[in-house]
């Protein structure tokens, strides 16, 4: 297969189309416009492909809800402020148990913030984001190749668990270009019985999230939890990097993990024993590997391009088993590996 040099935003769009996504609705917002624009150009060329520039992010995600219920592999994308607007729809997708892929190329916030790469939406992504007891699977790519791969996989996960899946990138993942080889998508496995297409002569069905009876609503909640427990057991993904004989381990995801690798390579060259654990699924969070690592290593440093959000999950996972410190750069600042290395050395020497 051919290697092509492609930006994250385009690779994500191309991977989605290759994975059989045939419905995309979006709304312009920087730094993910190239993804919407890619879909405008290519989705309508795909067989039965629909592209709609919606009037808002709220409309876009609800179009996806409709398309998903009607059987299409459906996707929407945005960046932080737009993702806030999509939360109502994401909550509805989770309640209705409908598959969908939502891409967030995060930018600096809160509010309008700026358009630079940031990681301030971790809480929103991993805690459900909208109202009610639910979870979305959250995938955090660190390279354009991984973004393409995870986009394809996101559709399979969404179908398998009939649940929204979020791809959590950032401005840099979307804008940077790297060589990509597109993988082969798996054939779709999604039972027709979930597709709403008119009952014909058969029994009619409905898809809904409103369950007025408390006990039945409670049972729906526990049913979702049982599903989330399966996901938490089966779908955890992470990468470890140079953790052997490490004295300090960095925890970072997405583009921050790339910067961390750069810092670690520098530090290893000067004899510091540092490594990295990179969560690829942010929910479910790879808690077990952290606990296992804490058996050998007592010093962890969380690095995020935020004021410290994943930090909570690391502390919850370690539950006092190790020392946890934090280095954060919110607001669209992307530190260089050298800057991060400096922060690491300070903690290393404690």
């Amino acid at each position: 297969m051919d290697k092509i040099l492609i930006s994250g935003n385009w690779a994500c769009g191309e991977a989605a189309i290759r994975a059989g996504c045939r419905f995309y609705a979006g709304y312009p917002i920087t730094p993910q416009n190239e993804l919407t624009e890619y879909m405008a150009e290519h989705m309508r060329q795909a067989e039965n492909g629909t592209f709609i520039q919606a009037e808002s992010e709220i409309a876009a995600v609800n179009m996806v809800l409709g398309a998903s219920a009607a059987g299409a592999r459906a996707m929407t994308s945005s960046s932080s402020p737009g993702i806030s607007l999509k939360q109502e729809g994401i909550s509805a997708l989770a309640a209705d148990e409908l598959p969908a892929v939502i891409v967030n190329m995060m930018r600096g916030g809160p509010g309008l913030g700026n358009i630079l790469p940031s990681q301030g939406d971790y809480y929103q992504a991993t805690r459900g984001g909208g109202h009610g007891d639910y979870r979305t699977i959250v995938l955090a790519p660190a390279s354009v190749q991984e973004l393409a791969d995870l986009t394809m996989e996101a559709f399979d996960l969404a179908d398998a668990y009939r649940n929204p899946v979020m791809i959590l990138g950032d401005g840099m993942t979307g804008q940077m270009m790297e060589p990509v080889v597109f993988g082969k998508p798996r054939p779709r496995r999604y039972s027709e019985k979930y597709v709403l297409k008119g009952c014909g002569a058969g029994k009619s069905r409905f898809v809904r999230g409103l369950i007025l009876d408390a006990l039945r609503m409670e049972e729906h909640n526990w049913k979702l939890v049982r599903k989330y427990n399966v996901i938490a057991q089966k779908e955890v993904r992470f990468e470890t990097f140079r953790t052997d004989n490490a004295k300090l381990v960095i925890i970072a995801y997405g583009i921050a993990a790339r910067i961390a690798k750069g810092a670690i390579n520098r530090l290893r060259d000067s004899g510091y024993r540092v490594g990295l654990i990179r969560p690829i699924t942010l929910w479910p969070f790879p808690a077990q590997i952290l606990r296992d690592t804490a058996e050998r290593i007592g010093n962890f440093l969380v690095f995020e391009m935020s004021t410290g959000q994943m930090l909570d999950d690391v502390k919850l996972a370690l539950d006092g088993r190790a020392r946890v410190s934090f280095y954060g750069r919110p607001g669209g600042v992307v530190p260089t590996p050298a800057e991060l290395a400096k922060a690491i050395v300070q903690e290393y020497q404690r």
Binding site: T30, T36, R44, Q53
Partner: peptide, 28 residues
């Protein structure tokens, strides 16, 4: 600001980054 996408006021047939062949009434 976002770089020339189609607006609700984009004229029929007018090209934009999200209506590359021109705004089409039945689709857009």
């Amino acid at each position: 600001m976002t770089g020339g996408q189609m607006a609700p006021t984009t004229l029929l047939g007018m090209t934009s980054t999200t209506s590359p062949p021109g705004r089409s009434a039945p689709l857009d």
